[in-house]
Design a protein around this nucleic acid. Structure first.
Lengths: 190, 190, 190, 190
DNA sequence: TATGAATGAGAATTCATTCAT
DNA sequence: AATGAATGAATTCTCATTCAT
């Protein structure tokens, strides 16, 4: 237990409680208690509650981005690449339900400053954009306004993970997994 | 000014402030002040702050549902019906940006009890479900799990209105309007 | 007890406690308790602790200024006028030892913003300045830099009241009263 | 830099910060930081914050007393001796504005325990008392209560240095320097 | 119905001090 | 002697809600 340092324990506790009760519904005292540290310790590591949330957001975002990046590979036809990515992202969500739920709650929330939110979106959607461009070059993807397509991808991903988090069993069901990809892909495809 | 009763003034002020500052960021005192009434008056009309939010949510939801219902008509081919509905819903969002923003913020939020949220979703997505079933019967719409399709529709609608609220000028642009429908429709269509 | 409103009770309690324990040594909770009100009530009447102090400072200052003004009258030789004023001011201090002690503590303190302090000094020393000018015109008062003379008057008054507050019995002693005036007057006189 | 030991660095930083922000407005952490040492180090040299303040007070007082003592000499007429002392004390204040400001703030403050304050006053005013007695023996100084005269001297000195600290340029002006002495001396003189 | 002063539990944050290294 | 992470009591201030008028 002493291996994980207190800073990390605080982040873990915050993730759990923010998910369960929301940002404003969670007191710093309760985070500290759940983390097994004193109230002062929280403020030793984070100047205030807001920064704690943002630090957490950044950390989760980076973990997700790294996982996605690791899945991407330019092998095979574009649709195969996209399927691999989509299902990989769904799997990541199912393996890290707490982190995914955190994303659902905060990736559009006012608590995260606009700049940080947009930066996160950019980082994650960045190579989705590249893949769409490539698809358009190959005549596989429709020529629609890029910003709108990206917002759409984001919305579909949030919807799909929302669905699978609400019905965890279906996350293993081949039919539902493929269906979710089909909706996503056909929206974009020519 | 005395025409609108104080209850309505309170609801209006709450809508504005909840949008701007969130539920927890808005004090009942500030709502009362913005509404031009005394703090106590708010609690004559609503037993507590939560109920105020839920009442507001219900009112906005019903207004939206009524507007959508008015647009629907079983005339013409299914895709035309769907286009009319989709663009009508987009227009409603553009005409009521404050109410739409309120929806964006609270239709998935923890502040609204699950039961209320689901009921609202049902009411609004209800005849979307019917339309999908009809489409499937006619062989126009893909045979995918219904719950997933509905969640997808919802996610796409939120994404589209998010986009148009962020770029109000494009709300009048034919290309973007059609593109948003195309994404929506192609996801579902066979 | 209900006659004095809570606002005044809070000011009274604050005066007492600030005197006894200093500004930082006095918690808002203890002020509220001593005033017999809830903590929230204090913040209903004063936006924060600092404003409470400044309001108190202003109130005491105005009471003192009014008392002094009431004593001044242009009758008799200048030295008589000055003596009347000086002894009157000493008497006020002895009759209101708590308010005088408050002045001792805060009239030079950093807790009171410079602007407020200077305004208070002006108001109280204003007609001391006029009296000095008159004395100089009559050839009774030395021609020294005015600002320095005023600072000196203030310093002497604080010293004298400090002495009399520390030795309350001597406040009635004719010898000491006269001696304090003599020191003051001879410093200025030609 | 390593020449001055950390203890002294802490005292220097404390002097600066207490002046700028007051005792309660200055955290031990900020003192340590300004001194370039760790928070714990402060508590190796001083058992607590209060003791740090009192140690500082004592050190400054002793430095001042030593400087004054060095200026005193029983040569020439008494008024000359007094002038030398007074102007020397003013000069000391102007040469050590930070230490003088510290004195202004704490020599009457509640933060310094009464005993320490009185001891300091005694030490500094001690030979002022002797000089007054000598003046009275020679028929040069008024026969007024000694305690009152000492308090008056102290008050005048604080007022004069307050004035000169607020108007540093005038500290070199012969007229103002002499005027400040004149006020002081004429108050006491027969 | 309407008012707004009063309430007090609860929140975020600060900070002097300790102590293992 | 020096460090700085950790502590937790204490502090200021907020705010939903009540109630006498």
């Amino acid at each position: 237990m002493d291996i994980k340092d207190k800073r990390q324990q605080i982040l873990d506790a915050a993730l759990m409680l923010f998910n369960a009760q929301g940002f404003h519904g969670t007191s710093t005292a309760s985070i500290a208690k759940a983390a097994g540290v004193a109230t002062g310790t929280l403020f030793h590591h984070f100047p205030n509650k807001e920064t704690l949330l943002q630090t957490l957001f950044l950390a989760v975002k980076q973990e997700f981005a790294a996982a996605i990046q690791a899945m991407a590979s330019p092998d095979g036809p574009l649709e195969q690449q996209a399927r691999r990515l989509w299902l990989g992202a769904i799997d990541w969500a199912l393996e890290h339900p707490d982190k995914q739920q955190f994303f659902q709650q905060f990736s559009l929330s006012v608590e995260i400053p606009l700049a940080l939110r947009e930066q996160a979106m950019q980082e994650i959607l960045g190579f989705i954009g590249a893949m769409i461009a490539e698809g358009q070059r190959l005549g596989l993807v429709a020529e629609l306004p890029l910003a709108l397509m990206l917002e759409n991808c984001h919305g579909q991903y949030l919807a799909a993970t929302r669905f699978f988090l609400d019905h965890p069993a279906l996350g293993q069901d081949h039919g539902h997994r493929e269906a979710s990809f089909r909706l996503f892909w056909r929206a974009l495809a020519l």
